[in-house]
Amino acid sequence: MTTSTSKTVGRRAFLAGSAAMLGAPALAQSVNGDGTVEIERDISKIVRRNVSSFRSLDWRPYFSNLNNGAILVDTTSRALHYWSEDRSTYKLYPTSVPLTEDLTRRGRTRIVLKDPEPDWRPTPSMKQRNPEWPDYVPPGPDNPLGTRALHLSWTYYRIHGTHDTRKIGRRSSNGCIGLYNEHIEQLYELANVGTQVLLI
């Protein structure tokens, strides 16, 4: 009898503990009072990530048409939205965004070049901030631009992949918009030279 009682108590304690753990994120969000962010603990710092703003959107408030397709990058929710010209395809991807406001550019641009094997050179300002960085990185697993890159009409700005998946969902770039490699490969096939892009 003692054995079955301890098993029952043990199972009840486990279930109660599990329920408390499952309820903790909701409680933490309501205590935070924001409701749209979760706190993620990094080894070096606390990173605020937007959660509930990552949702599907309609293209109409942002574009007058879908000629050549359209890409909306929301730097607040850290999300990239893609709509095809014929409206048959809609994609929503998590992104990395620039580290700081002074590195963040907003406005309308377009894709001017699709690069299937991007190589990388730091911009002069990057090199000034990080003189230890290499002058050139060829295509491959060490390339900061990942497996594909979509060059924008703004000099040095791209939507590209990354091999460092920890960067996605964070403020982690020097100005570009980063995607998981599998997502940039999908977007690369969908988007065209001339696809309109809006960063907000």
Rank of each mutant, 00 (worst) to 15 (best):
D42R: 15
V197Y: 06
D102Q: 12
N65H: 14
S56H: 12
D86E: 11
N143I: 08
Q196V: 08
N67G: 05
R49G: 02
D164Q: 15
T95D: 00
N32V: 00
Y157I: 11
N181L: 05
I168T: 04
H163I: 07
D102K: 12
S88W: 00
A28P: 02
P98D: 06
L187K: 01
E182D: 14
N50Y: 02
T36Y: 07
T165L: 13
S172M: 13
P25D: 02
E182Y: 12
E85T: 03
T75H: 06
V97Q: 01
T165W: 11
A20R: 02
L152R: 05
G178I: 04
G69V: 09
Y93P: 01
R12N: 10
L103K: 15
L152N: 05
V31G: 00
L72D: 06
T104G: 02
F14R: 12
P61D: 07
A19W: 10
N130L: 14
V97P: 03
I43L: 13
V51P: 00
T3N: 12
H151Q: 13
Y156S: 15
V31C: 04
K127W: 08
R11L: 13
W133A: 13
F54S: 07
K91D: 04
N143L: 03
P124K: 05
T95E: 04
H163T: 09
V197G: 01
V112Q: 01
R106P: 00
P122G: 08
S53T: 04
A20P: 00
A191K: 02
R49E: 09
L198S: 06
Q29S: 14
C176G: 02
V97A: 03
P61Q: 10
P122H: 12
L15Y: 13
S96D: 13
Y188R: 03
T162N: 10
R12Y: 09
S53D: 09
A26Y: 05
G17M: 12
A19E: 07
L179N: 01
G33V: 05
N50A: 03
P25L: 03
W133P: 07
